[in-house]
């Protein structure tokens, strides 16, 4: 009873009388997307994030100048048609540095997330599922890390490791994993006694198998939301480290460091501080909106 496939692809997607698992999955994804696209703020956030990724990926084509080329005869010029966001104290084009700075920002945010996700999953699921002294020890360790405000702990670690972008990533990752582990543990506790877990135990499934096959997938939505919202705070922490001179080192462009350097010329060249700061604000706002939107869809109990 199938209609002509070309015109009714949408109908096929919307039809909830599934004829195959693939259709069920496609239906799920499409309906989720429809609900997401009804939230204009979340959609706006997504657009900004996509633009950020494109800017970082296509930086050599999007930028108008070389971000490192100095030209002291053209220092501290206000925004104009040749230098869209003006030039800095060494005559470098602020717009081009901003575009290349998107790479630094994304690099830090993605790397931290990639490091923190698995650690949070393993620690949280192990603490929640196995319980006992392992739970106690792991939660004590997260408590210790949580006792520090995140920027202060990141400051201490980057001071010990030395400045630089990789060390900033490690320092931030060390401060971000505890809340993720806490979240996974709390989620795990809610279904460690569920029937499907007990059934798997009775079948003799090993602890790692239960953790990764049964528990981790169920924690995934809330962790994805948390990690998306975390992106905003990672970006702010990275910018804060850069502002204090502990992030990416000059001359590589980093938004926080750009804003910090511009402070010396605040009265003569407001754009040096104002524009990188606005970029940080825009991107962290976008990740917050995106995360809120995802939460409304994927996690109805917190909507």
């Amino acid at each position: 009873m199938s209609a002509t496939p070309k015109t009714s692809f949408k109908a096929w997607l919307l039809n909830d009388d599934f004829s195959s698992p693939a259709q069920a999955r496609a239906h799920q994804a499409y309906v989720t997307w429809l609900r997401f696209s009804m939230n204009p703020l979340a959609l706006g956030g997504l657009v900004v994030v996509v633009l950020l990724v494109l800017a970082a990926w296509l930086a050599p084509f999007v930028a108008t100048h070389n971000p490192l080329t100095q030209d002291l005869t053209r220092a501290l010029l206000p925004p104009s048609s040749t230098n869209w966001f003006g030039t800095d104290e060494l005559g470098r084009d602020v717009y081009s540095r901003l575009v290349y700075g998107a790479r630094t920002t994304l690099y830090i945010a993605i790397l931290v997330t990639v490091i923190v996700g698995p650690i949070g999953f393993i620690v949280g699921a192990a603490a929640g599922y196995i319980g006992g002294w392992i739970d106690t020890v792991l939660m004590r360790v997260t408590d210790i890390f949580l006792a520090f405000p995140s920027l202060v702990l990141a400051l201490a670690f980057s001071a010990a490791l030395g400045p630089g972008i990789e060390n900033a990533v490690i320092a931030i990752a060390l401060t971000v994993w505890p809340p993720v582990a806490r979240l996974v543990r709390a989620e795990t506790l809610t279904f460690r006694k569920a029937d499907f877990v007990v059934a798997a135990e009775l079948q003799g499934a090993s602890v790692p198998r239960i953790m990764f096959r049964y528990i981790v997938p169920l924690c995934a939505p809330s962790v994805v939301i948390r990690l998306t919202l975390n992106m905003a705070s990672i970006i702010l922490t990275a910018a804060g480290l850069g502002f204090l001179g502990l992030g990416a080192q000059p001359p590589s462009p980093e938004w926080g460091a750009m804003a910090a350097q511009g402070r010396q010329y605040l009265l003569d060249a407001w754009w040096l501080t104002a524009i990188p700061g606005m970029a940080i604000l825009l991107v962290s706002l976008a990740f917050n909106l995106l995360g809120d939107g995802l939460r409304d869809i994927l996690d109805p109990k917190h909507a």
């Binding site: 905003a232 702010l236 910018a239 804060g240 502002f243 926080g256 804003a259 910090a260 402070r263 605040l266 009265l267 407001w270 501080t273 104002a274 990188p276 700061g277 606005m278 940080i280 604000l281 962290s284 706002l285 917050n288 909106l289």
Partner: peptide, 22 residues
């Protein structure tokens, strides 16, 4: 609220100095 927790506070401070002090 959203602006408050999305804005880098060192930048807000610098802008406040630029506008209200300078």
């Amino acid at each position: 609220a959203l602006l408050g927790y999305s804005a880098p506070i060192f930048w807000l401070g610098t802008m406040v100095i630029l506008i209200f002090y300078a």
